[in-house]
Nucleic acid binder design. Structure first.
Lengths: 299, 299
DNA sequence: TGTTCACATGAGGTATTTTTATGTAAATAA
DNA sequence: TTATTTACATAAAAATACCTCATGTGAACA
């Protein structure tokens, strides 16, 4: 049910996402002619062409590009508006857009999958959407309203958002089985030896180089699996979360290096925009997450 | 022309503002029955009653109150959205909501009336709205998008907004003709004498008491005319902008006190939200204001 | 050159919305 | 008490908007 329905804008956005009228038919549940008319009407209202279409392919015009972005924004806030008003009725409804960094599913203390399961088990009409991005992107998306909640090790906390501490994540340094250090006995491995080797750096979160005082890292990755793969090549050392290794298929092909000397902790936070915390759906999910984390730490 | 037209919400907001269906007919240009149906439809969609109506008078329910506020917000941002998309067409259009503190019209260096005149003289379809409020309220309204630009002596500047310095405003201390100090020769008036008397304090802006080290002020006003009237009672001394006095009808009934020792300057700023500065209408107005101020200072 | 693809257009029908006319209930007046 | 007015609700008819179906058009491609 839609309070703030706007057929023209919704059509436009769907058409862009489907890459043309023909496919959008099925997404919108109307015929291609209806779409054609709606887009024409929108263009008439705007006074300029928003997209080129036809046999040559579908393409947004320059202005159409801007219009598309703005339309997406306003439709998102319209959906939130709907949800807010409908929740006054007593039901839990609307979109719930959650963001995390990658590889959170193996964080035992949090157990996000379990939390989501519990949330979905409750009677509600909420539509979940999960986005994976870097902490910086998550922060941005929270502020613009793209996301309702996000979970990540937020190092730079901004005043617009509220943060709740969730749990710790321990990182250690690893090498692959083809790496020269793989077969070296423990007593021959110290920081000096380690610092002779190339490090693969994650583009956010743990910074290894300062501790080891190695040169600029030759490789940078923005994803945990990518990091694991780079390490598996045997060319790089790299930090990985302990919980991640436990679930990594080839964990026997990786070796921890000086775990007692080299380990880093990052704190995971749950972030929300205070104004959105009013939404019942958001409220419930946040409580679920926090509760799950407390339980995770006790056990 | 409306891109994001929402008949139900617009009807609701108008009905609330008109205080009932009957008056809203004329505002909306439809019959009372249509309004009745629209409100019923909105209530059906929401699942709860938003207002009590009938012979006993019109009244919002508790939830209706919340819905009304949220509806106002979303409609405002919908209008802004419209304006942004329509301006891509090349025309200058949309709402332009300006906020100031009171008594800016006599600020010779700024000459806001002249600026607005010039703006309206240009060919455009912009709808102006001017709001007068305190700096704190103006800041709030800018952040929420209630206002596009505001002019005031912003002492507490927040990072969400951008500020442009405009001009200075000089305040001096005055007394009314019935005040004991009114007829005292200049050489008998010094800070000690002055500090014996009651001060009328403005609820924001110039703080007189710290300088004079007088007791807590007995009277507080939130408006320049109110201040002038309090001073005219002969019971209070109070600060007023010099430019304001020049245009005050009863300026011969007021007397400046120790203008060489007691004068305060406040700096006027123009504040906008960076994201809104993109709007052509906002851009043009801001340029007009800044230009007018520069001219004002030269002459 | 003909065919196909992706959209545009027009006629006709269906849905939605509005108006007109009238009904109802509460407050006020007689 | 009863009549009247006020403010809104409702039903049916009228008007309008919207969609589908059938068909047209023009660019790309075989």
């Amino acid at each position: 049910m839609k309070l703030l329905r706007n057929t023209l804008l919704e059509t436009f956005v769907t058409v862009v996402e489907c890459g043309g009228f023909t496919d959008a038919q099925y997404a919108l549940g109307i015929t291609q002619s209806a779409i054609s008319i709606r887009i024409r009407d929108l263009e008439t209202a705007l006074g300029y062409r928003i997209c080129e279409r036809g046999r040559g392919g579908f393409r947004l015009t320059e202005r159409g590009e801007i219009a598309y972005r703005k339309a997406g924004d306003i439709l998102r806030s319209a959906r939130d508006f709907d949800a807010e008003l409908l929740e006054l009725r007593g039901t839990t409804t609307g979109d719930l857009r959650i963001g995390t960094i990658d590889a959170v599913n193996t964080l035992a203390e949090l157990n996000l999958a379990q939390v989501l399961k519990r949330f979905l088990d409750r009677p509600n009409e909420v539509q979940l959407e999960v986005v994976v991005a870097s902490p910086t992107e998550l922060t941005q998306k929270l502020i613009t309203g793209d996301l309702h909640v996000a979970i990540a090790p937020f190092r730079n906390q901004v005043p617009e958002l509220t943060y709740t501490e969730l749990c710790q994540e321990e990182h250690r340094l690893y090498c692959g089985q083809d790496h020269p250090l793989f077969d070296l006995p423990d007593d021959q491995i110290d920081l000096d030896v380690i610092s002779q080797h190339q490090i693969c750096q994650r583009s956010y979160n743990i910074l290894v180089s300062p501790v080891l005082q190695t040169a600029q890292p030759k490789a940078t990755v923005a994803n945990m699996e990518a990091m694991a793969m780079m390490i598996e090549t045997g060319h790089f050392l790299g930090p990985l979360p302990v919980h991640f290794i436990k679930n990594w298929a080839h964990r026997d092909r990786l070796r921890e290096l000086a775990p007692d000397k080299l380990n880093w902790n990052s704190t995971f936070y749950l972030a929300t925009r205070p104004s959105l915390a009013q939404r019942r759906a958001v409220e419930i999910l946040v409580q679920d997450i926090v509760k799950s984390c407390k339980r995770g730490q006790e056990s």
